[in-house]
Amino acid sequence: MTLDISFSLNGAEVVVGVRPHQRLLDVLRRTLGMTGTKEGCGEGECGACTVLVDGRVVNACLYPALEIEGRSVTTIEGLLGADHQLSPLQESLVARGAIQCGFCSPGVILSAHALLDRNPNPSDAEIRDALVGNLCRCTGYVQIVEAVQEAADRLGSESDV
């Protein structure tokens, strides 16, 4: 049994056929070919599949696809600017060496993005807390935390102007 559902994906309305057992992750990667969202553990531990639903981070591997109807989903592809420009947060991560193999990066970026949206001036502890659900096996996290802090500083000073 396939049901057609509609939702907003990175600002565009999409209609997809979804089966009852499918996860949001399956719909994004297989049905829609949006492979920026990664599958790691498949059980909500690693955060590689992190996406935003109505502005909040969720694990797409634990999100029943049918529940997405009428909601707004942002994946890593949705952060890319019109001229393929990286966001200030992404630029900071690149500059600080916070991206190595890159598998965790889409999830890390979306978690940090959601944090800065609700708390533009986070402490180190708040950054670490927001990233608890994103495992990185390369960087050791220090560069990631520094990069998010730097992005917060840059975004803060830009909005002050």
Binding site: G44, V57, V58, L62, V132, G133, N134
Partner: peptide, 9 residues
Amino acid sequence: LGSEQIRNV
């Protein structure tokens, strides 16, 4: 409880 991703759901 869990991570931000888990708490949101």
